[in-house]
Design a protein around this nucleic acid. Structure first.
Ligand code: ZN
Ligand code: ZN
Ligand code: ZN
Ligand code: ZN
Lengths: 131, 131
DNA sequence: ATCAATTGCGTTATGCTATAACGTGTGCGA
DNA sequence: TCGCACACGTTATAGCATAACGCAATTGAT
């Protein structure tokens, strides 16, 4: 997915997420952007949809929140399966990618003739500092 | 987690999930059980909490729904990491467990001194029939 | 037997998350 | 110039989950 020029709203949401310490809910983002003219949830959700499509933002399904992608590359290509550790103490999220897991999941889904479209891997627990 | 005698509400919710073709939302369960005296969401959520604690029900984070555990065993011991394929076409959910993935995730989290409490693996896509 | 603690239950109200449906404006190629 | 795609703004609504209260039944010591 190529990364096109972002619109004003998309830029605002992206900046909010980038400058945040951890993940944010859509409504938290909304509150942060009220001073910039945001009034309704849809403004946030529409921007988030696009940013996810561009691979710049990930949704954390298990906590209904969103986080900026921490990959070093520039998103000119899909990064495969993404996994996260999520600390319940401090909220810190760490993104990682592992070829071995991706391969293994691919083998398992192929065995049942399942066509994968999106894979979610989220590990809840406590980070080193919060253990 | 030992499986104690279920209460009336827990039994009703468990039966509803067991007899369902696929996963159900809490509110869908509520509607199914209105004829049995259910009136409020909390009656469902409280039962679901216990059933999850007993390992008899799993929550699917990516679709806000619940499904009966399909493991053959009797839940007298924790089954490790649970993974699911979820068909977007027919709603069919398949539960599976893989030692290799569990080991790999354990290695990766250990490397960052992360203490895992709950692991979510959900694969959205299309099953053989719906491909 | 009695008291205290635990657990389950029912109810009302509330909060959080996400989308439907409508209309507006803008840019761009046919 | 027309038609289309896309972003945007607004209002309303739908869907998911929990807070807080009180009551009843159970259990398990003392
Ligand atoms: Zn990423
Ligand atoms: Zn932490
Ligand atoms: Zn199971
Ligand atoms: Zn299917």
């Amino acid at each position: 997915m190529a990364t096109p020029q972002l619109t004003k709203n998309q830029t605002l949401v992206m900046d909010a997420l980038s400058h945040s310490e951890g993940p944010m809910s859509a409504y938290t983002i909304l509150d942060k952007l009220r001073d910039h003219g945001f009034r309704a949830p849809l403004q946030v959700y529409r921007a988030l949809d696009k940013l996810q499509e561009y691979g710049m933002v990930h949704r954390l399904e298990s906590i209904n929140a969103f986080v900026a992608c921490s990959c070093p590359h520039d998103h000119e290509h899909d990064h495969g399966v993404t996994a996260f550790t999520i600390c319940e103490g401090c909220g810190q999220v760490t993104e990682f990618h592992d070829e071995a897991i991706e391969q293994r999941l691919s083998t398992l889904t192929r065995a049942q003739n399942f066509k994968t479209e999106k894979t979610t891997i989220e590990i809840r627990g406590h980070c080193q500092s919060c253990a």
